[in-house]
Design a binder for these strands. Structure first.
Length: 571
RNA sequence: GCACCCGUAGUGAAAUGGAUAUCACAACAGUCUUCGGAACUGUCGUUGGGGGUUCGAAUCCCUCCGGGUGCACCA
């Protein structure tokens, strides 16, 4: 339709002997201003030295003379010279029919058809609790994965985990000093929580206790060297248990990773790369091996890749990781890494080094950075130290929802599952509704208030539409397009725009466009629902309204999927 | 100090250089409704300050103010 209107405008301009390379056509924010709108008259009025409004009148006159399309009801001039197009009942009826035909495929595009893409996200560390920052990273990463997947890319989800480092020594120190936390009884979740507590204890001691600091540094060396059987044993157990607990969380969150990279395995690969490129990229400085990125770009700075003790830093490991990724998938078109924006500067340095080593990687790497998740002051449900663990947050939100669900006929298991899905939606939506760059002030109280602008509101709208459809089935009212009412509804004016929104989100790797769109659609549908009885045998147009409800439910379900949110039929 | 990011109603956000700056929460006033009230209908209220570019600026440029992050052996 967009193309049709553009052609129509072009033809009209041609008749006026005006040539324009590109015509800007957009959906006005206010639906009163039509379904499509163009500012060509304003844009070219200066060139032609004409009054934009007069020019617009001439263009509209031509358009009306040329237009034979029944999808366009009327064309009007508004404001200083905008030309607004109003689509007809026929267009909306057709678009609802199209949505029903395509069902869950409605909205798909082939922007990235055939491209191989890898998305790395979440990156938790074994032995350490997964905190809300990881939750944020996971929500964004999963949504971006689904977006590119839905746009035709062959998508691989990757996770990178820090299985070596001081944090592990801290946790092991904590375990040594708290016998109870070493308990092998109970679920792996319970055991992982204990290890998290041991870490918090160890981290505190490392800061405040000289003796403990020395001991932890000792443990750290032994972890690297694998020289102490007792440490090896506790490491093996702790690694297994915390990784299993992460898997439980991924399942709750709706993520399934295809590839896991471990930091320990990137060490030697990274060191080899650095050593092999001494002189041309890397150089020695104060006993360490560094990369002086400012030589290539004044905005960058020098970073250490191998310490004076001969150990690779994060930077060197990142080199190894990227190398491994391309080795695993040699035909990869794009490798996306998602991290918090505090890592932006050194990721740039690493990217610069990589592009010197592999010029062909330069355009095949993309770093997306998101804001930080901060806590609103006020009481948090389950504070541990100064961080809120992802699990604690998920549990608190789920429990708050369970309290509200008492009047429904679910089995216990089903009820828990739905409560969990709604909780995940509350958290994910609050993250994904805003553009990825910004910080998020996380407010627990608000995250369990499900009114208005929230994930549960979207799910609620879906569930409600679903029960309308159930009733329609019972009363044997089938969707039909022949009986459309004369008036058009706001929902219809939004539903057909879904594919454009998806495309925009995928192009910019920005899920928030989808989130904002879904809220608008949900509000429009709820308003539609509130203003009439949809399933009504007395109403001849009832079966069209049922069709509209189907269309809404498909779009909502797909949209929620793209946000990584489940769409329960009942809640 | 240098670099990068940000500053929009009381709060959280949105807006390829375009129309009267949009949405939600909160507050206030209604609807007690049939198919799910986790709802619907209204009201209230906003671009940090100052310059500039432009027919037109939240958006681009300059400057000031305020916040965040990073800047050599942590990740």
């Amino acid at each position: 339709m967009e193309q049709k209107i553009k052609n129509l405008i072009k033809d009209a301009l041609k008749n006026l002997a005006i040539e324009v390379s590109d015509i800007a056509l957009e959906h006005p924010e206010d639906l009163k201003n039509g379904d499509y709108s163009t500012n060509v008259a304003l844009a070219i009025s200066k060139l032609l030295n004409k009054n934009p409004k007069v020019l617009a009148e001439e263009i509209v006159f031509e358009i009306n003379r040329l237009n034979v399309d029944k999808n366009i009801e009327k064309v009007e001039i508004a404001g200083v010279g905008f030309i607004n197009f109003y689509l007809s009942r026929k267009f909306f009826t057709n678009s609802i029919e199209e949505i029903l035909n395509k069902a869950e495929n409605f909205g798909k595009n082939d922007l990235l058809k055939g491209k191989k893409m890898m998305v790395e996200y979440t990156q938790p560390n074994p032995f350490k609790p997964l905190h809300i920052g990881h939750l944020m990273n996971n929500a964004i990463g999963e949504s971006i994965s689904r977006l590119v997947e839905f746009s035709g890319a062959e998508t691989t989800r990757a996770n990178y985990q820090g299985d070596v480092g001081l944090h592990i020594a801290k946790a092991i120190y904590g375990l040594f000093n708290n016998e109870k936390l070493q308990s092998k009884v109970g679920s792996h979740n319970f055991q992982a929580t204990n290890i998290g507590m041991a870490y918090v204890f160890g981290a505190g001691e490392y800061e405040n206790n000289e003796e403990a600091k020395k001991e932890i540094d000792e443990i750290n060396k032994k972890v690297y060297a694998k020289s102490d059987p007792k440490i090896n044993e506790i490491y093996a157990w702790g690694f297994k248990v915390t990784m299993e607990a992460f898997e439980d969380l991924y399942k709750t969150l709706g993520t399934k990773f295809d590839l896991y990279f471990l930091e320990s395995q990137m060490m030697s690969i990274g060191v080899d790369i650095v050593r092999a490129n001494m002189g041309n990229v890397f150089e020695e400085s104060d006993g360490a091996v560094v990369f002086k990125a400012e030589k290539y770009d004044p905005k960058l700075h020098t970073r250490v890749f191998i310490t004076s003790q001969g150990l690779p830093t994060y930077e060197a490991k990142e080199l190894g990781l990227t190398e491994e990724k391309f080795k695993t998938m040699p035909q990869m078109d794009l490798s996306i890494v998602i991290t918090a924006n505090e890592q932006m500067d050194y990721m740039r340095v690493v990217a610069k080094a990589l592009s010197l080593l592999h010029p062909d990687y330069e355009n095949r790497m993309l770093h997306i950075s998101h804001g930080m998740m901060r806590l609103a002051s006020g009481k948090m449900g389950s504070r541990k130290g100064n961080v809120v663990t992802g699990e604690a947050l998920l549990n608190d939100v789920r429990d708050a929802i369970l309290e509200r669900m008492t009047n429904r006929d679910f089995g216990n298991e089903e009820r828990e599952k739905v409560a969990s899905d709604v909780g995940v939606s509350a958290i994910k939506y609050s993250i994904l509704k805003q553009s990825t760059g910004g910080d998020i002030i996380f407010d627990f109280e608000k995250s369990i208030s499900f009114e208005g602008d929230s994930g549960p509101y979207l799910q609620y709208s879906y569930a409600r539409a679903n029960s309308v459809l159930e009733k329609a089935q019972k009363e044997n009212i089938l969707p039909d397009f022949e009986v459309a009412p004369e008036e058009t509804f706001e929902v219809e004016k939004l539903l057909y725009q879904f594919p454009e929104i998806v495309l925009k989100s995928a192009r910019e790797y920005e899920p928030h466009y989808i989130a904002n769109y879904l809220i608008e659609v949900a509000r429009a549908y709820n308003s539609f629902y509130g203003n009439m009885v949809i399933v009504n045998k007395e109403d001849k147009t009832s079966s069209y309204k049922v069709a509209l409800t189907y269309a809404f439910s498909f779009v909502m379900k797909t949209g929620l999927h793209l946000l990584g949110i489940a769409a329960p039929k009942k809640m």
